[in-house]
Every structure is written in structure tokens, then in C-alpha cells.
Amino acid sequence: MSQPAPFFKTLLARPEAVLLFVLVAELVFFSAVGRNFNTADNFANIVRHSAEIGLLALVMMPIILTGGIDLSVGSLLGLCAVLFGVFTHEWHIATPLAAALTLVVGAAAGGLNGGLITGLRLPPLIVTLGTFSLFRGLAEAITKGTMTYKDFSPAFLALGHERALGLPYQGWLFIAIAVAISVLVHRTTFGRSFQAIGFSPEGARYAGLPVQRRIATTYVLAGFVAALAALVFTARLRQARADAGSGYELQAITAVVLGGTSIFGGVGTVGGTVLGVACVAVLTTGLKLIPAIALQGIGSELGSLLTGALLIFALAGGVLAKSLAARRARRQSLAKPQPQPIT
């Protein structure tokens, strides 16, 4: 085990490498058969259409890494969008201040999740199932379901529509958050503890880590970025309504898990999550640009179906690779007898 394996072999065993291969294959395939796939406008579309889900996936990742889950991020996006509308349109707060206030509310809502999960040791799935309903319910109650906030300032709307250096603003935002989270998770002692906690909460506790506080941090972070995603979403659609972000939580989880993060915690990289987001975004957009599929009128359905299939194959492939490696290891160890742990 301690022998260094050849570089390409370790690379192939990593889910990120497989995903990168899938992504490149998608790009090549869609460039060949898709109509106007390989254009700047199309890539701007891909980035703009997946930025919010991408942001949610980036903060879902540390949560899943600690062994948790957050089903409430999509609902929180809706609540934050509505609150931003209330701040700007009913309380007449200046846009920058309203945005800052929205981010604070998002972080606080994440803090509610984190507090309940860590303070009372409640299962994240249940707490966030409750807040999934609660946040969406509050958004509906505030707007009575019907109120739509529109006419935001042009400077704010630019966030959803303008580009800098060819990349839409929200693409830069996504990169900034991706780098920040990557540094946090992989480069700081603070963030590396997420992985330790997910790998073994007991072990992390014995190692002296403030496990509960660290876990709570991941939910606060998720709330904060969900609010950020709400601002991006509002700017892109030019309006805030209570149903913003419906179903985004499941799409974010899909991207994270596809990116190789174990749903049981302890294993995963931010780079993998980014690749997971990109694979899904390119796949669903590319399919609609294939004339044969577009003419059949099945683009949206096929996109969802293939994303589901990709998820299953990625997971099953990972398991298969692992069991093959285990079998090979066993064969080698039979040739050179070693004490075997009972499995």
C-alpha cells in the first residue's frame, strides 16, 4: 500500500479525473453535433443558467463532507429573494445595504439550521426538511404568494446579465467562491477539520476539535451563499418571487455527489464539485442544441433522465473500481502472505 502508484493510475482512480474525461467528452461531442454549441454566447448561457445551483453546490459540499445535508437551501434562496424585494421596495433601503442585509438574514437562517443541528444534536436531514417547508412558507406568507417585486436598479441587474472579459459576472462570482471554499476546505486547518469530522466525528472529538461549532459553521456558510445566490437569481430574472429556487437543493446535491463527495461524509474535493456542476450544466444545455433532439421536443426530459443515469453510473463505477482494486490487492497479498483484517 505504501508503494507509490504510477501517476496516471492514481489519477484514473479519482472521480475528478473520470469527471474531467466526461466533461471533455461532452464538450467534444456537443461541439461536433450540437448547433452553435461552441460559441461565446452559449458558454455565457451555460454559466448564467447554472451559477445559482453551482453556488449552492459549493456550500453544500462542506456540509456533506462533515456527514450532514441541507435540504433547505433552495427554499432559503426563495425567502432571501423575497426579503431583498421587501428591503428595496417596501422599506426603500438602498440596494447595496439591502443586499448586505439579505446576506445577513441568509447567514442567520443558516445559523438556525446549524444551531438546531449542533445545539440539540438533531439529524440534519430532519431539521432541514422542517426549514425547507418553513423558509418557503415564510416566503409565501410574506408575499401572500402573489406579490412579485420588479424594477430593480440597472446596476444591480447587471449582475445577472453583463459580462467582464467574456465571462458573465456571476461566473466570476462563482470562481471567487469556488477558490475561497477550496482554500478553506483543503488549505486551512479549520476547513480540513470538516473532512476529519465526516470521516469520524468521534475521532475528531478526541483529537480536540470543537466538532459542533465547526459543523454549525458549514450551515451558516450555506445560508450566506444561498442569500448570495438569491441576489444573482433576482438579478438574472429581474424579479423576486416566492417560488425562486424551487428544487435547487436536489440539483445541488446531485452535482456534489456526482463530483465524488461521499454522501456519508469524509471524502470529497471542491474541484470535484465544480466538475460535477459543469458536467450537468453542459449536458443539459448541449442536448437541447442537438437538432434531432430539439425537433423531437424531448430536450428537457432527456436532460433530467441522463443526469440521473450519469449519477448512478458514476457511483456504480466508483464502487466497481474500488472492488476491483480490493480484489487485485487480495490477489497480491495471497502471493505474498500477510495478516489480513477480517472484513
Partner: peptide, 23 residues
């Protein structure tokens, strides 16, 4: 329009009550 919020509150109350008690 209050329905979802109330439903979420009930779920949270149920688990919070349980959490406080087990602690």
C-alpha cells in the same frame, strides 16, 4: 399561504421537543 410555514414549524417543533428531551 400560511400552510407551508405552519407545516414546517410543526416538523421542527416535533424534532426540537424530542431533542431537548433526549439531551
Amino acid at each position: 399561504y400560511w400552510e407551508k410555514a405552519i407545516q414546517g414549524l410543526v416538523i421542527l417543533l416535533a424534532v426540537v421537543a424530542d431533542g431537548i428531551r433526549s439531551r
